[in-house]
Write a protein that binds this DNA or RNA. Structure first.
Length: 488
RNA sequence: GGGCCGCUAGCUCAAUCGGCAGAGCAAUUGACUCUUAAUCAAUCGGUUCCGAGUUCGAGUCUCGGGCGGCUCACCA
């Protein structure tokens, strides 16, 4: 039998003993008067007064007839001090049988120890929940990455920094909501289960609805539904929610991820750009109190205006290649090969350009930067530039080399939109599994008329990575997707 | 999916060239009424991820499998 089981057996025995003594090891509630952090903060007013706190025993030092322990709650931790001559022999002996990991409620008065630590002199305590399994080790905490993700609760108990990441994540999302609401956007919810998926280039998860006897897809984006709302007369909408993409898992990809998408009537991508830089600065201010963040050791100011560069110019700067001089796939791929670049020669011209951006441009975009004007082929939902119809009015926003925003002037010409879908279908037939499918229902919506609209998508997980200085998306998702262990 | 690396006590980690599988913390017992990585003494705790193989002998070498990390491809 493993040690863990031994320990569990011993604690189960303690549990039974408590029950036999008429003590409920899992009582219903306990009314506390203070959080541990409040008790410490308000020590000057509370010294000598009785307080009631509750939390988990995280350390214990038994010195014969006196015992010190630390109790942790959501706000922090506080030391408690229990003495035999205060509690009485019976209660004190019971106290000594408590285990690290147990939840207790403690009442007593606040004082300061010789070492200067604010402490509760325990006058009474109540067991609130018995623990049966040991907590991670106190010195090194929990470092086994797999265990940290699979049993995130242990990670949160053992590693305060991890807890902090998720507090920041919550604050970032709240700041984003506040920003959007203050700008007059209303928050909406659109279907996650969709009869047709669209709004991004990705493979979907498929599922099946029994009663309707039909295949449904988990959404890969909220885009097409949100734009139907613009058709319907809402002029500023946004949605924060999960998207699902049936693709590989990596340091930057989780199969389900959170995105914020917004659409604003009578705005174009330049307006959206202005909004994004305002939003980022606002969020940093709300979360950190300044318009600055540190990522990978570099401190960056998010204060508007951000650097703006066209994709064409960015590629010229990074590689010396001006794709406009190579108007077809053959000439461009020949030039790229000549420059010694490695790439899949079967890629279309647009995807070659995309390849150069992600390989040579993105890693250099440390300072907040907008890359503008993308090839029309990789942007089937964006409006063409009037003077350069092979490009669209689209930008991506980068911080620290990480793409955090994607936006464009929305294509509201239903004729052009239908043609773009047809083009996507051709690419799909040619083997591109991520090309869009035809969404007739969406085109019909556009045919009823959609005002000029600026749209935006922000990957919240990646944004939180930048805001919390994390290199892996798994560190900002509480329960990242992992392979399930095969049962023996 | 490909490549590289990892998996040893509940946790964090050792183990020389292939030669008795160890430490700290946790746990158990005892001492101890201001400790805080409490201290002191003693004790318990192992399918070395799983399965084969080579060998007198495998944590260590070989093969297969599982899980994880990084990386490449794809994507946000």
């Amino acid at each position: 039998m493993a040690e863990g089981d031994d320990l569990r057996q011993m604690r189960l025995a303690k549990l039974e003993k408590l029950r036999s003594e008429g003590i409920d090891p899992y009582p219903k509630d306990y009314h506390r008067t203070h959080l541990t952090a409040q008790a410490i903060q308000q020590f000057d007013e509370l010294a000598g007064e009785d307080v009631r706190i509750a939390g988990r025993i995280v350390s214990m030092r038994i010195l014969g007839k006196a015992t010190f322990a630390h109790i942790a709650d959501g706000s922090g931790r506080i030391q408690i001090y229990a003495r035999k001559d205060v509690l009485g022999e019976e209660q004190y002996d019971d106290f000594r049988t408590l285990d690290i990991g147990d939840f207790i409620g403690v009442s007593g008065s606040l004082f300061r120890t010789k070492a200067g630590e604010i402490t509760i002199e325990t006058k009474g305590y109540t067991l609130l929940a018995k623990s049966l399994r040991p907590l991670p080790e106190k010195w090194h905490g929990l470092v086994d990455v797999e265990k940290r993700y699979r049993q995130r609760y242990l990670d949160l108990i053992a590693n305060p920094d991890v807890r902090k990441i998720f507090e920041v994540r919550s604050a970032v999302i709240e700041a984003m909501r506040t920003f959007m609401r203050e700008r007059g956007f209303i928050e909406v919810e659109t279907p996650a289960l969709q009869p047709l998926y669209g709004g991004a280039a990705a493979r979907p998860f498929e599922t099946y609805h029994q009663a309707l006897d039909r295949t449904l897809y988990l959404r890969i984006a909220t885009e097409l539904y949100l734009k139907r709302l613009i058709v319907g007369g809402f002029e500023k909408v946004f949605e924060i929610g999960k998207n699902f993409r049936n693709e590989g898992i990596s340091i930057k990809h989780n199969p389900e991820f959170t995105a914020m998408e917004s659409y604003e009537a009578y705005a174009d991508y330049i307006d959206v750009m202005e909004m994004v830089e305002q939003m980022m600065a606002f969020m940093a201010r709300m979360v950190f109190g300044k318009e600055e963040i540190t990522y990978k050791g570099q401190t960056m100011r998010l204060t508007p205006p951000w650097r703006r560069i066209t994709m064409r110019q960015a590629i010229i700067e990074a590689t010396g290649i001006d794709f406009r001089q190579y108007p077809d796939q053959q000439t461009l791929s020949a030039k790229m090969a000549e420059a010694g670049m490695k790439f899949d020669p079967a890629l279309s011209r647009a995807k070659l350009i995309d390849h150069m951006v992600s390989t040579y441009v993105e890693p250099k975009l440390i300072e907040p930067t907008f890359v503008m004007d993308f090839p029309v082929e990789v942007s089937p939902l964006a409006k063409r530039k009037t003077d350069e119809p092979d490009l669209v009015e689209r930008f991506e926003g980068y911080i620290g080399g990480m793409e955090i925003a994607n936006a464009f002037t929305e294509l509201n010409d239903p004729i052009d939109q239908r043609e773009r879908f047809v083009k996507q279908l051709e690419e799909r037939a040619a083997g591109d599994e991520e090309a869009h499918v035809m969404d007739e229902d969406y085109v019909i919506a556009l045919e009823h008329g959609m005002p000029p609209t600026g749209g935006l998508g922000i990957g919240i997980d990646r944004l939180v990575m930048v805001f919390t200085d994390q290199q892996s998306i798994r560190e900002v998702i509480l329960f990242p997707q992992l392979r399930t262990r095969r049962e023996e």
